[in-house]
């Protein structure tokens, strides 16, 4: 059970003067239950890539296999794929439209062909999973705060019970607490519901803290693919492609150069703290 991309190419406006090669021979395997971060500067191909995973864009050449089946076979059910691979766009709250929170979340499952009762049950469960209080279920979604609206929008995708959840910058525009809440929620869903999560982010700190594997996109190709520790050890190369490593990673490299710490691979505050306390011969409190 996985998604396999085999030499996927995608060209916008092919055979015209404005031809742009957005994806260039991408081969990847996304295992079931993984928690993956995708990073890359604006225009590096992140959004084009994720739109291939649920069949919104069709590769110019190459193949994509979802749970062993070629999604480009003529009889493949793409509308079912789009429910199995849920995509939460940037600023998803702009897509809320119904008069109540509950109706909005019901829209996806109703579209799947479920009856009202079943859709209602799904909506109820999804809203509970994103931590919305019951008293707002029958209020207009437009009167909620930014962070709450975003939760409702995520619940709308969750209600379709996807096996894979892709989120394009889910924390853009949120305050720090809202940022942590949404990311904790996503990590929690990954753990409790066992779904595969793919997170597109511009925040290196967030990616380092939450995901198990990072895919770095540059010019339509995969530049690096590995654990946060492996990927951020290339901090100089990342800067060359308009990215960066988390601040603590830089600090650790500087401390190592000054002869203080032995290990410069820390990518989170916790890891850095442990490593520094160890160097000073103190036991960490965590």
């Amino acid at each position: 059970m996985s998604i396999i991309l085999d030499k996927v190419d995608y060209v916008y406006s092919a055979d015209s003067a404005y031809e742009i090669r957005a994806l260039n021979k991408i081969s990847l395997t996304i295992e079931d239950g993984a928690f993956i971060g995708i990073i890359g500067h604006t225009g590096s191909g992140k959004s084009t890539l994720i739109q291939h995973l649920n069949g919104l864009l069709k590769a110019t050449s190459g193949g994509i296999y979802f749970n062993g089946r070629d999604i480009y076979e003529p009889d493949y059910d793409l509308s079912r794929l789009r429910m199995q691979v849920g995509l939460v766009f940037q600023y998803p709250e702009h897509q809320l439209f119904a008069t109540t929170v509950f109706d909005d979340v019901c829209f996806g499952p109703m579209n799947q062909g479920l009856d009202k009762n079943e859709a209602g049950l799904r909506a109820f469960e999804a809203l509970k999973n994103v931590g919305m209080a019951e008293e707002v279920y029958y209020q207009s979604p437009f009167h909620l705060s930014g962070g709450q609206k975003r939760r409702v929008a995520i619940a709308g995708v969750l209600a379709m019970k996807p096996e894979v959840l892709i989120l394009d910058e889910p924390t853009a525009g949120l305050d720090p607490k809202g940022r942590d809440e949404i990311l904790d929620l996503i990590a929690d869903m990954h753990q409790k519901l066992g779904i595969t999560v793919i997170l597109v982010s511009h925040s290196m700190e967030d990616v380092a803290k939450y995901v198990q594997r990072i895919i770095v996109m540059n010019d339509g190709s995969v530049l690096y693919d590995g654990t946060p520790k492996e990927v951020f050890s290339h901090y100089r190369e990342l800067e060359a492609v308009s990215l960066a490593a988390p601040q603590v990673t830089y600090l650790m490299h500087e401390l190592r150069a000054a002869g203080i710490v032995a290990d410069d691979g820390a990518t989170t505050v916790e890891e850095a703290k442990e490593s520094i306390l160890k160097a000073f011969g103190r036991k960490g409190s965590v």
Binding site: H41, T42, G173, H202, S242, A244
Partner: peptide, 11 residues
């Protein structure tokens, strides 16, 4: 007003 909310790190 949040001029960098939609930008990548170098932006």
């Amino acid at each position: 007003d949040e001029p960098t909310a939609m930008l990548d790190p170098s932006g």
